[in-house]
C-alpha cells in the first residue's frame, strides 16, 4: 500500500524529467519556422538538417576533441588529487588540519566572476593561454575544492576500523591510501567523475578565456545563440549531440554507485 502511494509522485517527477528530452528531440527535428508557429506540437515532417548544420556550422566536429581531452584530463586529475587530499583530511591527523579544510571550503565560495581578471592574468603569465593543458589545469583548479570536500565527507563516513586494522597489519600511510582508501572511494569517485565531467563538459566561461583560438563543444553551442534570436531547433540539435556522451557516461556508471562498497570491503 505504502509502495503504491509513493509510486505516483515519483512517476510524475520522472515524467517531468523525461519531457524535456522529448521536447529537445522533437524540436531538433523541426525547422525554425515550424518551431515558431508551433512549439509543442509533434514534428510533422522531420528534418535532420539541424544536426547537419550544428555539426558543421558550429564546427562541433572540430571542438569535440578539445572537449574530450579537457574533460577526461581534468576528471582523472580531479579524482586522483581529491582522493589524496580527502584521505589526508578525513583520515590522517595533523596540525592545522581544520585550517586547511576551512581554506579549501572557503575557496569553494569564491564567485567565479570576480576572479576572472586575475585568473586570466595567471593563465597568461604561465604561458597557458590557448593550450589544452591550460584548460585541464584551470578546470582542475576550479572544481578541486568541491571534489576535495566531497571526498573528505565521504571518507569521514567510513568506519574508522578499516584504516586502524590496516595500520595494525603494518601498512604505511601511502599503502593504506592506495590499497584501502582509494578503492573504497569508488562510489564517491564515480559520482565525482560524473559531476565533474558534467561541469567541465558544460563549462562555457572558463574555456572562453583559456582556449580562444580553438574552442570547446559547449562554447560552439553557446555561440549558436545570437544577439537577438536563438534558433531553438538548431540549438536543440546541438545540445542533443553534446549531451549524448554525458548521458551515456551516466547510464553506464550510475549502477556502480549504489552497488559500490556496500557489498565487499566494509563487511570484510
Amino acid at each position: 500500500m505504502f509502495k503504491r502511494l509513493l509510486s505516483l509522485p515519483m512517476a510524475v517527477i520522472a515524467f517531468t524529467c523525461l519531457y524535456p528530452l522529448f521536447f529537445t528531440l522533437n524540436n531538433a527535428l523541426k525547422t525554425n519556422k515550424e518551431y515558431i508557429l508551433d512549439r509543442f506540437g509533434l514534428v510533422s515532417s522531420p528534418t535532420f538538417e539541424n544536426f547537419v548544420q550544428a555539426w558543421t556550422r558550429s564546427r562541433l566536429s572540430e571542438y569535440f576533441l578539445n572537449s574530450v581531452t579537457a574533460t577526461v584530463g581534468a576528471c582523472l586529475l580531479l579524482i586522483l588529487l581529491s582522493s589524496m587530499a580527502g584521505f589526508a583530511l578525513a583520515i590522517l591527523r595533523f596540525p592545522l588540519r581544520r585550517l586547511v579544510f576551512i581554506a579549501i571550503l572557503a575557496s569553494l565560495m569564491i564567485p567565479v566572476q570576480v576572479v576572472l581578471v586575475p585568473f586570466y592574468k595567471t593563465i597568461i603569465a604561465f604561458g597557458l593561454l590557448n593550450t589544452r593543458l591550460g584548460l585541464i589545469l584551470s578546470y582542475t583548479a576550479f572544481f578541486l575544492p568541491f571534489s576535495i570536500y566531497l571526498m573528505t565527507s565521504f571518507y569521514a563516513g567510513l568506519p574508522r576500523e578499516l584504516t586502524e586494522a590496516a595500520r595494525i597489519d603494518g601498512c604505511s600511510y601511502p599503502q593504506i591510501w592506495w590499497h584501502v582508501i582509494f578503492p573504497l572511494g569508488k562510489p564517491a569517485m564515480i559520482t565525482l567523475g560524473i559531476l565533474n565531467a558534467l561541469y567541465c563538459w558544460n563549462d562555457v566561461l572558463i574555456s572562453l578565456l583559456v582556449l580562444q583560438n580553438e574552442r570547446t563543444l559547449m562554447v560552439g553551442i553557446a555561440a549558436l545563440r545570437g544577439e537577438y534570436t536563438t534558433n531553438v531547433p538548431l540549438l536543440c540539435a546541438g545540445i542533443v549531440l553534446a549531451a549524448l556522451p554525458i548521458v551515456a557516461l551516466y547510464l553506464i556508471f550510475q549502477r556502480q554507485i549504489v552497488n559500490g562498497i556496500a557489498t565487499g570491503a566494509v563487511k570484510g
Binding site: 566531497l150 565521504f154 563516513g157 562510489p187 559520482t191 554507485i257 549504489v258 559500490g260 556496500a262
Partner: peptide
C-alpha cells in the same frame, strides 16, 4: 551524491 553516500 546522496546515493553515493548511502552506499556507506
Amino acid at each position: 551524491i546522496f546515493l553515493a553516500g548511502l552506499s556507506t
